[in-house]
């Protein structure tokens, strides 16, 4: 259970460019939900993710994760329970390290990074199995540097690495936006299967309305720091891409765009 309560967030406080994004923003995300978030640029989608993860601080309100108030908790400590995949495929992997080293370092998340050997030999087969399910042939390239892989391959690895250890929340920040349509479909299917298999509570920001409709158990549309649509279950199943698109246009007209 993840709650944002009465969140206030301002940008450029005290300057002429001061901008209020969130004023008393609330959202509850229940365990096991897969929430797709859509909205125009500047609507506060990524800011919401940053607030959850701690890479942006709030000016008011509380963030509660599984009953614990984490509003003041440092960003890196929050990631013990959170996995995150970014839009930029290079953000989720280490380009100068090999595939095997990347897998090993992700496998050790939230544990001690001590003077034991970096690669635990007994785990290598497990890494190979994990890579095999990507169907990209990476299991035979264990000693290749990740920097030599394509964006899609790297994003697939980033997804694997983010979900390798038992995490409670998965944050996907437009993670298919930088990929070609075919690769994006592949990554999206992979995401869905991992999330279902491990039953991770997921928040996915996307600009792809089709993904937002097809995947996930709840659909949220944000606009100017507010939630304007929030559909779950049966209601969501009956929502099509065109319905959302219509709303999108409606809002845009209201804004005078």
């Amino acid at each position: 259970m993840l709650e944002l309560k009465n969140i206030d967030k301002y940008y450029n406080i005290g300057t002429i460019n001061e901008m209020c994004l969130f004023k008393g923003f609330n959202i509850n995300i229940n365990d096991g939900e897969f929430v797709s978030v859509v909205g125009s640029n500047g609507s506060g989608k990524t800011s919401m993710l940053n607030i959850i993860c701690g890479s942006a601080y709030v000016d008011g309100g509380e963030i509660i994760m599984n009953g614990e108030n984490i509003t003041q908790k440092k960003e890196y400590l929050r990631y013990k329970d959170i996995g995150r995949v970014y839009q930029d495929p290079s953000m989720g992997t280490c380009p100068d390290m090999t595939i095997l080293e990347n897998m090993a370092i992700a496998d050790n998340k939230a544990k001690k990074y001590n003077l034991r050997l970096g690669i635990t030999k007994s785990r290598v087969n497990f890494y190979k199995e994990q890579l095999k399910r990507l169907n990209l042939g990476l299991e035979d390239k264990l000693h290749v540097k990740v920097g030599a892989l394509s964006g899609g391959q790297r994003q697939a690895m980033a997804l694997l690495m983010a979900t390798m250890t038992p995490i409670k929340f998965l944050i996907l920040d437009e993670h298919t936006a930088a990929l070609d349509p075919k690769t994006a479909d592949l990554i999206m299917e992979l995401t869905d299967s991992i999330v279902k298999e491990k039953n991770i509570t997921t928040v996915m920001v996307t600009h792809n309305l089709r993904y937002a409709v097809e995947y996930g158990s709840r659909l949220i549309m944000m606009h100017k720091g507010d939630i304007v649509i929030d559909k779950a279950g049966y209601e969501k199943q009956n929502t099509g891409v065109n319905d959302i698109l219509a709303l999108f246009n409606e809002i845009s007209i209201e804004c005078g765009n």
């Binding site: 890196y76 100068d96 390290m97 050790n108 990074y113």
Partner: peptide
């Protein structure tokens, strides 16, 4: 490994808690 990762990608190290 962690030392090498910091020089490579600080974001990833933060994500590794």
């Amino acid at each position: 490994f962690l030392l090498r990762a910091v020089g490579n990608n600080e974001t990833l190290v933060t994500n590794l808690a």
